[in-house]
Design a protein around this nucleic acid. Structure first.
Length: 813
DNA sequence: AGCCCCGGTGAAGTC
DNA sequence: CACCGGGGCT
């Protein structure tokens, strides 16, 4: 309901109200768990709009798309639907990918660039590692990717990386001396494929804003008010983006809680909060410390836990709520028994207090832990829903169909091409693909382009296969024609059937096959919905600046069609939305009343009356991988803090003495975090263990919580201050003073082909230079312009046949 | 070219 | 235990 007064402000306490009303200039809101942070952000934005600020001039960055949606609908209740819709609100990745769609040509990327997810990135890395004849057990794709990701999130380009002696040294010590080379090749290949990985979306936004002052100015003018939620979880790259955008008006408000920083592993940097104070001397800081969510027992227990961390801002979260029940700790002999006890407890609570299933959440450290909980809940007929794990968009059949979409939208997308060129089977096998890959690599073109020019390469591909390749190209081309004429659903449906994918899945009558077919149908239905809905105001705004429609070749369209096209919701628009969706974003309806199971990370920002935190064991929570350094252990502790503070009425912890891990029985010790809770807030339910395993599975001579809290003491004595200083964290300090010079290897314009005159200079006998293979002598030239090709004998011994329109050969005398 | 089986290896968390 | 990739067989 729209109201014209400011009465909504009366719903705030004094601290909240002050934070809301201070709308001008830089501000930071340190908000303890459950202190009404979302309410403050919501009302602050509503107040801005009530004061007459145009929603198009407000940028609000949230941690998940879901958080953005929820906040938007809350704002809509105060200021009205259409006003709220016009707000720029979303995750960093979604907001800036949207902007890059419209500006990417300035940094050398076409507008239809593809976003690679981490599976795509890993398989690209696997290829690169293989082609360099390296061992993928030493150069593990996932590890390489995380290191590349760290570099990019700290705005270190491949070239900068290579000139960083510290980084190179680190790689040698880690026995991956060729990492830098892989990084360079990876980035080059992404660029060639017109693809960006997740980190590139931020990295390239930084490039764009750094190298194009006009663009920076435009968005500075546009985003006069900037708000950032979960600021403690932003990384350096994100920090620089918002600092740049806010530089003109300085209306920047960040909201966060250092105690809830749980994403350092992906580059989030608490340092950003400290930097913030330095960057804006006139900064006003607000603290929200009253917790409205939880009982006293929960709040105080959480405070007690977090006080074991050295690195933290002093903050005292308190509550006026009742003391409530103590936190219960359940001990189980096995992971299965843990599941049974948790399920039984839920069952009891439900019946005694007539509660909905949705009042309960079970939180765990790792997704693998869900299995035993699921089994137990199923046995007791308690409905549940799992967040996370394999999301809809990660399923094979969905990825297959979407690979078609991606290839049609961007034919340079080699990862997608590899995925579907022979699915459904069409007689184009591995050896053909290998040959094409080599030709594409040598000529620095995409595989699709190599196929289109296959007659120009002597690849030893027989006529039959060549015909099949031509058919494939023709098919993709015909889909591309539809892309600019039809709406998303029509194109998607046409691709699904004409490619043979639908038929292939339909013929599979196994239950799995049927389910795959249904998933495809669900995707198509989703696209149908999308086609029928109108475009977002944000995209309308950006599109209105455009002169020509994207990806449409003007000569293909009459004026009338161009007009229609502007209204159509196209498949490339759909794909742009989808690339950044996560499981947490799945639609909320049709869920019914269910117990919720999820990782603690996924639970951030949520609250439930009853929370079960399972797997409270050493090496699991805290994870064994975190035991190397104090900072990592402290992050685990913050994670525990987040977990406890999700509970409104009651928190229950549990641990098992024996657990299956990697298919083997593992003995576990109760988590050190349990020692950190005093008996004032916690009660231990010590059920006698059921002796199904050998006696040493549970040390009955020792009372688990009176265990000398050696872990903490030992730990501090052992490792205090000895955190591994990675090259990135060191560099970060240097860099925070001024804008990082980001290398522009990416902004070199796309392949500059030789013109005819230059090509004619390349004749048998001349010496030429190739940027990758070095110098060589031309031993043969054949074919007619523009398909002239030269055979070159390189000094390194290799002989290559190169298409001159692709290979940038330089004649040297 | 495709299928199947074997063995090795791995699971922390996410946009 | 579950998945993936490689190799071998058809």
């Amino acid at each position: 309901m729209e109201s014209n007064n400011f009465s909504f402000l009366n719903e705030l306490n004094e601290a909240q109200r002050k934070a809301v009303e201070h709308t001008e200039g830089p501000s930071m809101i340190l908000a303890g768990a459950g202190s009404g942070k979302t309410r403050v952000l919501t009302y602050r934005i509503a107040l801005l709009m009530k004061k007459g600020v145009d929603p198009f001039n407000i940028l609000a960055l949230t941690f998940t798309n879901k958080a953005a949606r929820e906040m938007k609908s809350r704002i809509a209740r105060i200021v009205g639907e259409s006003e709220a819709k016009a707000l720029w609100m979303g995750t960093f990745h979604s907001v800036f990918s949207r902007i890059l769609r419209f500006e990417s040509e300035l940094i050398g990327y076409p507008k239809n660039f593809t976003i690679y997810d981490s599976d795509d990135s890993k398989s690209l890395l696997r290829e690169i590692i293989k082609s360099m004849n390296l061992d993928d057990k030493v150069y593990k794709p996932s590890f390489i990717l995380s290191r590349i990701s760290s570099a990019k999130n700290n705005l270190i380009s491949p070239r900068q990386y290579m000139s960083n002696t510290l980084a190179i040294e680190e790689d040698k010590l880690a026995r991956i001396p060729l990492f830098g080379q892989i990084f360079i090749t990876y980035q080059k290949r992404l660029f060639k494929a017109s693809a960006m990985d997740f980190d590139d979306l931020l990295f390239n936004t930084n490039l764009l804003l750094r190298d194009h002052p006009k663009v920076l100015f435009k968005y500075q003018e546009k985003f006069r008010y900037i708000l950032v939620d979960e600021y403690q979880d932003t990384n350096f790259s994100q920090y620089v983006i918002i600092r740049q955008l806010a530089a003109a008006f300085l209306n920047i408000c960040v909201v966060g809680d250092d105690a809830q920083s749980i994403y350092a592993f992906r580059g989030a940097n608490i340092q950003n909060i400290l930097n913030f104070e330095k960057d804006y001397p006139e900064l006003v800081t607000f603290k929200l410390e009253q917790n409205y969510r939880s009982t006293k027992n929960i709040v105080e227990a959480a405070n007690q836990v977090i006080n074991n961390n050295k690195d933290q801002f002093k903050k005292s979260v308190w509550t006026q709520n009742d003391s409530g029940e103590k936190i219960t700790v359940i001990r189980a002999s096995t992971d299965n028994e843990e599941g049974q006890k948790v399920a039984a407890a839920i069952f009891q609570y439900k019946n005694h207090e007539r509660l909905l299933n949705s009042a309960f959440a079970v939180l765990y450290r790792t997704n693998a832990q869900s299995r035993s909980i699921e089994e137990a809940l199923r046995k007791m007929n308690i409905p549940y829903r799992i967040y996370g794990g394999l999301s809809f968009y990660q399923r094979k059949e969905i990825k297959d169909l979407m690979a078609y979409f991606r290839l049609v939208i961007n034919s340079n997308d080699d990862e997608s091409l590899r995925r579907i060129i022979n699915y459904p089977a069409r007689g184009i096998g591995q050896s053909t693909l290998d040959k094409l890959s080599v030709a594409a690599g040598d000529n620095e073109i995409s595989i699709f382009t190599a196929i289109e020019n296959v007659k120009d390469f002597n690849l030893g591909i027989n006529a039959g296969t060549r015909a099949r390749l031509t058919d494939f190209v023709t098919m993709i081309r015909s889909f591309q024609q539809q892309l600019i004429q039809k709406d998303a659903y029509e194109v998607a449906h046409s691709i699904a059937s004409a490619s043979g994918l639908l038929k292939d899945l339909h013929s599979d009558k196994t239950p799995e096959g049927v389910s795959r077919y249904e998933n495809i149908m669900e995707l198509l239905n989703g696209i149908k919905d999308f086609s029928e809905n109108s475009r977002s105001p944000q995209d309308e705004e950006l599109k209105s600046q455009e002169v020509t429609p994207p990806s449409a070749e003007p000569e293909d369209l009459f004026d009338l069609e161009v007009k229609d096209f502007r209204k159509l919701r196209t498949l490339d628009e759909f794909m742009m939305d989808v690339a950044l969706l996560t499981d947490a974003d799945e639609k909320e309806d049709s869920q019914g009343d269910k117990v919720v199971l999820m990782t603690i990370h996924a639970a951030k920002g949520l609250e439930f009356p009853f929370v079960f935190i399972v797997g409270m064991e050493e090496n699991l929570f805290p994870s064994q991988l975190s035991l190397q350094s104090r900072t990592e252990l402290e992050e685990e502790r913050r994670l525990f803090y987040v977990a406890i503070t999700r509970a409104e009425k009651k928190a229950t912890l549990s641990y098992a003495l024996v657990r299956y891990r990697f298919g083997k029985i593992t003995h576990c010790e109760p988590s050190r975090f349990l020692d950190e809770l005093s008996n004032d807030f916690v009660e231990f339910i010590d059920t006698a263990p059921q002796r199904r395993f050998t006696d040493d599975a549970f040390d009955s001579t020792r009372d688990n919580w009176s265990r000398p809290s050696s872990s903490g003491i030992n730990f501090k004595g052992r490792k205090n201050g000895g955190d591994s200083q990675s090259v990135f964290s060191q560099l970060n300090i240097q860099r925070s003073n001024k804008l990082v010079p980001v290398n522009s290897s990416q902004s070199i314009s796309r392949a500059l082909n030789l013109d005819e005159t230059e090509m004619r200079k390349i004749v048998t006998g001349v010496t030429v230079q190739h940027e990758k293979f070095g110098n060589g002598k031309v031993v043969n030239v054949e074919g007619n312009f523009p398909d002239t090709k030269a055979t070159v004998l390189f000094e390194n011994g290799g002989q290559k046949m190169l298409l001159l329109k692709f290979a940038r050969l330089k004649v040297i005398d």
